[in-house]
Simulated assay, not measured.
Amino acid sequence: MGELRHGRVVPQVESLLRERLRRKEWKPGERLPNEVALAAELGVGRSSVREAVRLLARDGLLDVRHGSGTFVAEAPAESGEVGQLLRRARLLEVYEVRRALEVEAARLAAHRVRPEDIERLRAGLRKRQERQEDGPAMFVDADLEFHRAIVELSGNALLLNLFLAALPLLRETLIEMVRHETGLPDVSCAHADLLGALERGDSDAAVKATVDNLETVLSGVREAVAQ
């Protein structure tokens, strides 16, 4: 079944349920146990189960039928190469938006970051590293938490609002990327370089590290789509 760790409950419940769906513990069209039963089995509150189910339904994995229960969604029509191509096309668009927002955020943050902010970012980067083996949802949440903190440090409220508006789609797409794409590059060094640049207050280096992080993935996806 998996084991819950300390930290945010909903992403862990989502990850556990997603893994059980992946292992086909419940078949397409089969009804899941109700909220009360799942909450008791996982040792969490009903609200956490409800939110995790909502996220999985949004991703098209579950079908919530009010009055009837929650069912495993039937396999989507778009599968195989077509589905992969559509995922990669959406991933390209999402990363283009990320670049537009996060490059400027890094440049501004380098001028405004304080020592206590660096410690918070360093803790966030450690958490990102620790979550790499904890499933796609938990890893993506830790990664986005790190990047969101940098956007917040830009001091630009409009930039932050734009990032937050894109966050749900960004999260969904990144989880799909981690789950389905093979041979993804390790961009840990680019993240460490970004933190170092911010600590030095070097805006040019912060921009370069951000571009290196995003372009490393973008170039691979562009090449895959072109093929």
Rank of each mutant, 00 (worst) to 15 (best):
E3C: 09
E3D: 09
E3L: 13
L4T: 00
R8H: 06
V9Q: 03
V9D: 00
V10C: 01
P11G: 01
Q12S: 02
V13K: 05
S15C: 11
G29L: 05
E30C: 11
L32K: 08
E35L: 15
A40S: 10
E41D: 08
E41G: 06
V49L: 01
R50V: 04
R54G: 12
D59A: 15
R65T: 05
H66K: 14
H66F: 14
G67F: 02
G67V: 05
G67S: 05
S68Y: 14
G69Y: 08
T70K: 04
T70E: 02
E78T: 12
G80M: 09
G80H: 08
G83D: 02
G83C: 05
Q84W: 12
L91T: 12
V94D: 02
R99E: 15
R99L: 14
R107Q: 06
R107M: 07
A109S: 03
R112Y: 05
P115R: 11
D117P: 08
G124E: 00
G124P: 00
R126T: 15
Q129F: 13
E130S: 12
Q132W: 04
Q132D: 04
G135D: 01
P136L: 10
A137L: 04
D141S: 11
L144K: 04
R148G: 05
L153F: 07
N156M: 06
A157H: 08
L159M: 11
N161D: 10
A165K: 10
L169H: 08
T173C: 12
H180A: 11
E181L: 15
T182F: 07
P185M: 01
P185A: 04
D186E: 11
S188N: 09
H191P: 00
D193V: 03
L195M: 07
G196H: 05
R200Q: 11
D202Y: 00
S203W: 14
A205T: 05
K208E: 12
A209M: 03
D212G: 05
N213E: 13
S219K: 15
V221H: 03
V221G: 02
A224C: 01
V225G: 02
Q227H: 13
